[in-house]
Design a protein around this nucleic acid. Structure first.
Length: 246
DNA sequence: CGACATGATTGTCT
DNA sequence: AGACAATCATGTCG
């Protein structure tokens, strides 16, 4: 039932060789939500998954070879016993049926157990490998610069549209949902402690001001590579104190 | 190693 | 659906 579905979705109980990794990748992409699939890291995951798969299949095969036999043997054994008893007391066919049913259920519960334990193994594997929190990497400097630049130059309304997010994502070579995460975190953390971000705000404000100036001055002249820092003190950072972020 | 920074997830609200 | 708030898990710096 449910276990079957999950194992199938996970590519464990699916078709043998080729489809396995594809199904696993599909499952990962589908439920992972946030893509970020480095195939190098996924290969490890896939290797472990196929290991589980192999164990599952060999166990299942063992079960099917052995237990079918055993089940039939056991059933006939019980039948014989019942037949013997039927000499001394009447035994209804209903009772025999019930016994057989019990035996079959008992044996199929073994299969269930196998499936369940396999499921568990897969779940553990997934939580280990697919939980992005466990392998978080900071964005590179350029990406954070781009994001910060957008944030501080739209400080009065730091809610990029879907299009803007896509563009930022492309520029930073991250996903759109990563951009959304970044802005979510940034907004809340900025709001929570504006003082801590003052310096950063000033810096980016100054930088964009310089950029705008140099662009509007149509000069390919004078781009200051390192610190276009506002000389001296703290010119007004041009952020609106409240507004929007609530 | 501890403290803080940071990206991601989860739950709740609207 | 998207925003916010709290929280988790890892990265990084002193």
């Amino acid at each position: 039932m449910r276990l079957d579905n999950m194992l199938l979705a996970e590519g464990v109980s699916g078709p043998e060789k080729g489809g396995g990794s594809a199904a696993a990748a599909a499952a990962a992409a589908a439920s992972g939500g946030v893509g970020a699939d480095n195939s190098a890291e996924h290969s490890d995951y896939r290797a472990k998954l196929s290991q589980i798969r192999q164990i599952y299949h060999t166990e299942l095969e063992k079960y099917e070879q052995v237990s079918k036999h055993a089940c039939n043997e056991f059933t006939t054994h019980v039948m014989n016993l019942l037949r013997e008893q039927s000499r001394t007391r009447p035994i209804s066919p209903k009772e025999i049926e019930r016994m057989v049913g019990i035996i079959h259920r008992k044996f199929s519960s073994i299969q269930m157990q196998l499936k369940q334990s396999t499921c568990e193994a897969v779940m553990i594997l997934r939580s280990r490998f697919l939980d992005a929190r466990r392998k978080r990497r900071n964005f590179n400097k350029q990406a954070t610069e781009i994001l910060n630049e957008y944030f501080y130059s739209h400080l009065s309304n730091p809610y990029p549209s879907e299009e803007a997010k896509e563009e930022l994502a492309k520029k930073c070579s991250i996903t759109v949902s990563q951009v959304s995460n970044w802005f979510g975190n940034k907004r809340i953390r900025y709001k929570k402690n504006i003082g801590k971000f003052q310096e950063e705000a000033n810096m980016y404000a100054a930088r964009t001001a310089v950029n705008a100036a140099s662009v509007s001055a149509h000069g390919s002249q004078a781009n200051s590579p390192s610190t276009p820092n506002s000389a001296g003190g703290y010119p007004s950072p041009c952020y609106q104190p409240d507004r929007r972020i609530q």
